[in-house]
């Protein structure tokens, strides 16, 4: 499986965020996006998630399911958690499991060490625990491409290690990861894409 972006440009609100960006990523590789605030890291991830369209250039995926868009084969972990305070941890995950197409609930809870809090309302979780709940989606529903936007924000040391182990496992199984981050992820990126300064 190969994810390629060629000559990508992104425009938001009439402003060119970045232009002329190229990358290509194979199975089992981690692409790390770096760059100052406002340089378009999140915008690039959104383009890859099919939540927007590039103003120029093309994103293509080879070797994926032909009837699905790259976005439908990807997990996108953004700054927001996509979890509901009124539901318990398990209910949140069960919903995403059923909605996104099935997976292993126990494995997901254990992967982010939330099993002891499974029946806890998400409203009572701390910021770091909510982040782990969002990351649990990665382990819950198998999808080949992971798009991570500052995945380590709010995580303590042990949770950072869990995240690194999760990512490592995904890469070993032949997955692709694109991660935007300011802090080290705890594993070596295969490729780096540095987006320039915001204009």
């Amino acid at each position: 499986m190969q994810l390629t972006g060629s000559n990508l440009a992104c425009e938001r609100g009439g402003r060119t965020v970045f232009s002329n960006q190229n990358f290509s990523l194979n199975s089992g590789e981690l692409l790390q996006l770096t760059g100052p605030n406002g340089s378009g890291k999140s915008s690039l991830l959104r383009l890859l998630a099919n939540l927007g369209e590039p103003s120029h250039g093309k994103i293509s995926l080879e070797g994926g399911a032909p009837d699905l868009t790259p976005g439908q084969q990807a997990h996108y972990i953004a700054h927001s958690d996509a979890s509901k305070s009124a539901l318990t941890v398990t209910e949140n995950l069960v919903f995403w499991r059923d909605f996104l197409g099935g997976g292993d609930l126990m494995r997901a809870l254990q992967a982010v060490n939330l099993a002891p809090l499974a029946d806890y309302p998400a409203a009572l979780l701390s910021a770091g625990q909510r982040r782990r709940l969002a990351l649990a989606r990665l382990a819950l529903v198998p999808r080949p491409i992971w798009l991570l936007d500052e995945p380590g924000v709010g995580l303590d040391d042990s949770a950072q290690k869990l995240l690194a182990a999760l990512m490592n496992g995904h890469l070993r199984e032949g997955g692709l990861i694109v991660a935007a981050t300011h802090v080290p992820l705890g594993l070596d990126p295969d490729k780096n894409l540095h987006l320039g300064a915001a204009p």
């Binding site: 099919n50 939540l51 996108y76 953004a78 700054h79 927001s80 958690d81 996509a82 509901k84 996104l100």
Partner: peptide, 16 residues
């Protein structure tokens, strides 16, 4: 609105 604010809508847009 709530699903938009907490990011659920983005995840839903990526569902099959």
């Amino acid at each position: 609105q709530q699903d938009f604010e907490d990011g659920s809508l983005e995840v839903m847009a990526m569902a099959p």
